Amino acid sequence: LDVQLTNNNGTLLTSVYHKPAAEPCITPFTSDHPRHVFSNIIKTSIERATRYSSTFEAFNYERRYIKLMLLYNDYPSTFIENEFHKYFSEYISKSPFLPLINDEQKYFLMRKHILGRPTPRQSQVALSAALADIDNDPLDDDEKQQPNPDPKQSEENISTINEKFFTHFTYEKRFKTCKRDMHQVYNHAFKDTPAMYTKLIVGNRIRRQTQNELIRKRPNKNLLQNTTTIKSKSNNSNRKQFK
């Protein structure tokens, strides 16, 4: 859906398609996200441009579009250049005044190399298909005759899982050193104790948007049920007396 096909005198050319009404809005650089999120945005945009651009001219146009989009969302120019250089480290020109790839032949070699690698989605589908084939294959006679696994080995596997302690925190820029600080506190508090054999793994979660914080997706059941009002007998008797 995001590929534009162009017929140039019988030759089909591909490029990245942008909706006319679409605005160049992505995750702002000033938002509270880990640093790798911004790097992945640039990497994904460049890789999509390389995969979809069948000509060197279309790639250069998309490269300029990506840079303008990043600058529009407050990405520093030095950060953009560093991420571009990191991605094209094998093909980049040494001169800073030349384009990142100043030769059409280099671009096609790079594109061929990138197209030869599977995308994350393709890798996930291939892995799911392989696991499905393993689950659906019938067992051989040798596999059926194999004895049950040793319960001690299963207990050892469970114990290795228990030797890891996972904890997460909501990421904010002010908590940039939180991982390092938590490791230091853990090592200081449990030094020379059996807890040191447990590996501490600290992860982070992206903070939810304000819209999700203020809006309840699942209201209370009382709000979803229709309330029926039942008239009391006392009210009916009072009405008869007035008559």
Score class of each variant (00 low, 15 high):
Glu57Ala: 06
Lys243Val: 08
Thr177Met: 12
Gln122Phe: 05
Gln184Thr: 15
Ser31Glu: 07
Val16Ala: 11
Met69Thr: 15
Ala126Val: 00
Lys106Thr: 08
Ala58Val: 02
Val202Gly: 03
Tyr186Arg: 06
Lys179Glu: 15
Lys217Glu: 15
Ile41Lys: 00
Ile66Asn: 02
Cys178Val: 07
Asp142Met: 05
Leu12Arg: 04
Asp32Ile: 01
Glu62Val: 02
His36Gln: 12
Cys25Asn: 13
Thr6His: 04
Phe165Arg: 02
Met182Lys: 07
Lys152Ala: 15
Ile101Arg: 01
Leu127Phe: 04
Phe88Thr: 14
Ile206Gly: 04
Arg51Glu: 04
Thr55Asn: 02
Asn204Gly: 06
Thr78Gln: 08
Asn162Thr: 05
Glu90Asp: 14
His85Cys: 06
Leu224Trp: 01
Thr198Cys: 06
Phe84Thr: 04
Ile66Glu: 00
Phe56Arg: 04
Ala132Gly: 08
Asn102Glu: 11
Thr170Ser: 12
Gly203Phe: 10
Asn162Gln: 13
Leu131His: 10
Ser54Val: 05
Met196Lys: 15
Thr27His: 03
Gln209Ile: 11
Glu143Lys: 06
Leu98His: 01
Phe29Trp: 15
Ala195Arg: 06
Thr198Ser: 10
Leu100His: 00
Thr44Gly: 08
Tyr72Met: 03
Phe88Asp: 01
Phe190Ser: 02
Arg218Asn: 11
Ala195Met: 14
Arg64His: 03
Leu224Pro: 03
Tyr107Phe: 15
Asn157Glu: 10
Ser45Phe: 02
Leu214Met: 14
Pro96His: 08
Phe242Ile: 12
Leu12Glu: 06
Lys199Arg: 13
Gly116Glu: 07
Thr177Leu: 10
Leu68Met: 07
Glu83Lys: 13
Asp150His: 05
Thr119Tyr: 09
